[in-house]
């Protein structure tokens, strides 16, 4: 397989049930997406031109921000459409294979693991929640301090106020997270996103994801309304996103070459 360069490669997006009949948007390179059948499961795949998406191209563009961003967006677009029409287990990028046989043989070797992972996300979607510390309101300046001592005392008091506010905000965020987690089948917290990546200056206090039964979505949204109002009083902005494909809830299912019986 190393001798002849491939004309075509296959990209795998995610795993669905064999009964999945959703209509999906085009995927990588605007290629159509098909469901490749694998026992009682289906794998969402696109056949791609190797000249545009082969290994060499990944190696050349894998660190090119614009390219990766575009590919990630196309990969996600397919999974997002899938989760809006059924259950889906997302595969991580990149997922390029020589052909559908290669996809099939890798996944078939670990069918039980995949089934277990798929069962965990069945009927469930991911919600994301982020909490940001809002800028504190400017303290009205009480005129020029009368002395250096007054100035220092004033600064110490302001510092104590800030620290107190921070503690309150953190405690409120933790409590909110716990209440949301209680409604979820599973919850994870991720490291705060880099400000440079998120484009947000406010400190990120929480970057969490929840695996929520579809039937409970309304309850969670209702809870978020309440929590958001409470958090605002503590100087915290709560942002909820989703429903997402359950990207954050597949970790136990990682399939490695060692585990895969190739």
């Amino acid at each position: 397989m190393t001798a002849t360069p491939l004309q075509q490669v296959v990209h795998a997006y995610g795993v669905v049930s064999a009964e999945f009949r959703g209509s999906l948007p085009s995927g990588l390179g605007d290629a159509p997406v098909e469901v490749f059948s694998l026992a009682d499961l289906g794998v969402l795949v696109s056949r791609l031109d190797a000249a545009s998406f082969g290994e060499a191209v990944w190696q050349m563009h894998g660190t090119d921000p614009g390219w990766v961003e575009r590919v990630a967006g196309q990969h996600h677009r397919v999974l997002q459409a899938a989760v809006e029409q059924g259950d889906v287990l997302p595969l991580r990028l990149p997922g390029i294979y020589a052909d559908t046989n290669a996809v099939g043989s890798v996944l078939a070797g670990q069918l039980d693991v995949l089934r277990g992972a798929f069962a965990r996300v069945r009927g469930r979607v991911e919600l994301g929640a982020k909490a940001f510390a809002l800028a504190e309101p400017e303290q009205p300046e009480a005129g020029r301090p009368a002395s250096g001592r007054d100035y220092l005392l004033g600064r110490a008091a302001a510092g104590a106020r800030r620290e107190h506010a921070r503690d309150r905000a953190n405690a409120a965020v933790v409590a909110a997270h716990e209440r949301m987690a209680a409604l979820a089948a599973s919850a994870v917290t991720n490291p705060p996103q880099d400000a440079a990546l998120s484009g947000r200056r406010e400190p990120m206090l929480l970057n969490a994801a929840y695996l929520v039964p579809r039937a409970s979505l309304d309850d969670v949204v209702e809870l978020v309304e309440t929590l958001g109002a409470d958090l605002a009083a503590d100087g915290v902005a709560l942002e909820v996103s989703g429903p997402w494909p359950p990207y954050n809830f597949v970790a136990e299912a990682d399939i490695t070459a060692a585990g895969a019986d190739l």
Binding site: H75, R92, P94
Partner: peptide, 24 residues
Amino acid sequence: TLADILERVLDKGIVIVGDIQVRL
């Protein structure tokens, strides 16, 4: 947001490391 998508697509999701063929 782009950050949310990148975080998920590139850092989450099942990793399938089969070492056959073009797996990168």
